[in-house]
Amino acid sequence: MKHSRGNQPLPVLPAASPARRNSFWKTALQQRWLYLMSIPFIIYVFIFNYLPLWGWTYAFQNYKPHLSFSEQQWVGFEHFVRLFSDDKFYQVLRNTLAMSFLGLIAGFTIPIIFALLLNEVRSSFFKRFVQTVSYLPHFVSWVVVASLVTTILSVDGGVVNDLLMAIGIIDEPINFMGKGSWFWYILTAVDQWKEMGWSAIIYLAAMAGIDPELYEAAKVDGAGRLRTMWNITLPSIRSTIIVLLIMSIGHLTTIGFEKQFLLGNNLTKEYSDVLDLYALNYGIQMGRYSFGTAIGVFNSVVSIILLLVANGVMKRTTKESIM
């Protein structure tokens, strides 16, 4: 840890002084450039991200798009009560959280390990080549990937089953895509296959910022490759990892539905239906804007709670945070 730049004590500019009010304006004047650089964006963010939030009022109305605001019928928490008393909601919530957590665990180990190992590749050409190839699947649509996966895992001549049978692990082909309880794991694995290279880019960029002198020093100390990776590379990208982790935790309930929908089938529905699909099916697609918005509000509230918790925990334990 001692090599990490993130933990170096940061010099703090003089802030607290006896005449507080005066010094506040004095500092503000000193920071006029910073103000100039941020205030336009504060206004921008307010307009584009906060203004539209008046739409949350839909969740408490029986919203009809052609009526004006004053003509809408207000219903209080009716849509939330409906949502929370629906068994299906809890099923899709369970699936969403399960796949999110698996995704979080896999998404924060596999790409990092891959990036660490790739960083150790000596040949610059080979390194670039592997990197370029590994990010290609990110650009292949889920429709294509889902079809490839079903073919590979097919009972009838699928590569995986043929292989397992050939080396004698199984006697009979396994119907991978027909086992509901396996779905979460298959989806997570496929997701990593598709996104590993793409996710690793950010860690590689962080590694590129590491001061080579640190490696030199480690070499002088006689540290091996694995040791260097553990003691220098990993701590140096720590803050990037934590920032990404905090931001991802906030998104646990919003994971989209496309990949689950395309990879799943009617045998796996119990495990593959997720919250976003539920919101689509029971919300806007039925013209139930208010119900759809209620799910959106629920998502936002949960997200922000998760974000604050993650941020707080990280701040306390690692001194890193985004806010």
């Binding site: 079809s147 079903t150 073919t151 097919s154 009972v155 009838d156 119907n175 089938n265 009617n266 045998l267």
Partner: peptide, 16 residues
Amino acid sequence: LDPEAFTQKEDQYKAK
């Protein structure tokens, strides 16, 4: 009945 009847996707079905 085809054991894959409930898991196959449209292109596998057509290919078959």
